[in-house]
Design a protein around this nucleic acid. Structure first.
Lengths: 204, 204
DNA sequence: CTGTTTCGAAACTTTTGTGTATCGAAACGG
DNA sequence: CCGTTTCGATACACAAAAGTTTCGAAACAG
């Protein structure tokens, strides 16, 4: 038993790795992915320069580019909307608001692009994005719609898969018509889309 | 007046440029764009190799990469659906079928990706895509929906912009759940989506 | 046949990124 | 204070691609 047996195995001695540098590397990576399109244009040198870090510090932690990408995208948390549960419409609007903001945010959008385009080049990465980002959203919406069917707020014969595609796809495609990061998008856009789609999803 | 005054100005003498080579270059460019993601990964050398052409032949016609891309994407015709005009539903299904096929076709999909992601890097190119591909589709759908409103097949207070986004966005997002080029997508998908959306767009 | 231009191929220079190694300085444990 | 490890910076060899030039062959006009 050594004297330093606080909680875990003893620290391996020597200068500890800088958590600040690690953070800076992840941030720089996400920045550069957002600015570029496609993972092929991403260079380790650019990441090191942007992060104010030596290349050594990167290669010491990640042996190849994909490992770094996996960690970087994992750090990009996916904030699912808090579902108040008061009414179906209210929860759907909350979801739409989240999707809308993500569609306008460069960092969130690049995750979608990677999932759509890099399936063959980086299957491991895409698979991880699916289970970390896409599957949870799909699950939330599925549960939400089935709850709505149960409470009678939605048609009993509702086509759930198509409804999910319409909820996400419509928001994404609608905001696409406006500038990516501009501020000229009106206020009640989420409500407007949901109210439009809800007409066809409600009973009678 | 020279003897060769057939229709236009006389040919400038010398070996004429091979139309076949030009075609091969355009085809190779489109192939490589489809396979890659992002325009930055595209290399002139790869295009020349794929086309079976010397790099000289490319640089002689296009001074830079973007000029080549503009011409290549212009060659990618956008087949708007033939609108039979018998019923609104029939025409909408025809549109949806076209969008669906395009969403699964690598060459068409890459146009969408470029339009969404390369706005800052290639504004000229994106602007051209907008006026050559996106605007016509938007116009067709707008006319179609307004005709439907006039004939009473659609609600008089229909939100046309949101409807357009829902028609395209839902199809694109729905087929996205299946494999990109797989064959496992069911037959009546276009009808299924249109019938779902039409519920909320019809009167009463 | 002669002059001109394009053809594909190859050599060339320059730029950019990869991955490794080396350097002195700094941060820790003991 | 000492050994160890990380720090950022820099240099290095290697590869890929950009863009230019040169080359012999081929296609066309006159």
């Amino acid at each position: 038993m050594t004297t330093t047996d606080e909680t875990q195995a003893a620290r391996p001695a020597g200068r500890p790795r800088s958590a600040r540098a690690e953070k800076a590397i992840i941030e720089a990576t996400l920045d550069l992915i957002s600015e570029s399109s496609g993972l092929g244009e991403l260079s380790i040198e650019a990441i090191a320069a942007r992060a104010g870090v030596g290349k050594t510090t990167i290669y010491r932690r990640w042996s190849n580019k994909e490992d770094l990408l996996v960690d970087a995208l994992a750090a990009l948390k996916a904030p699912l909307p808090a579902l108040a549960g008061r009414s179906l419409r209210e929860d759907l609007v909350a979801c739409a608001e989240v999707f809308l903001q993500e569609a306008r945010n460069a960092r969130s959008r690049c995750v979608m692009n990677i999932a759509m385009n890099e399936t063959e080049r980086h299957p491991r990465l895409v698979q991880r994005i699916h289970q970390a980002t896409i599957a949870p959203r799909r699950a939330v919406l599925t549960a939400l719609l089935q709850r709505g069917i149960a409470t009678g707020e939605l048609r009993a014969d509702l086509d759930v898969p198509v409804s999910i595609a319409s909820l996400i796809g419509t928001v994404v495609w609608y905001v696409r018509g406006f500038g990516p990061d501009q501020e000229d998008l009106p206020e009640g856009t989420a409500e407007r889309v949901i109210d439009h789609l809800l007409v066809g999803m409600s009973p009678r």
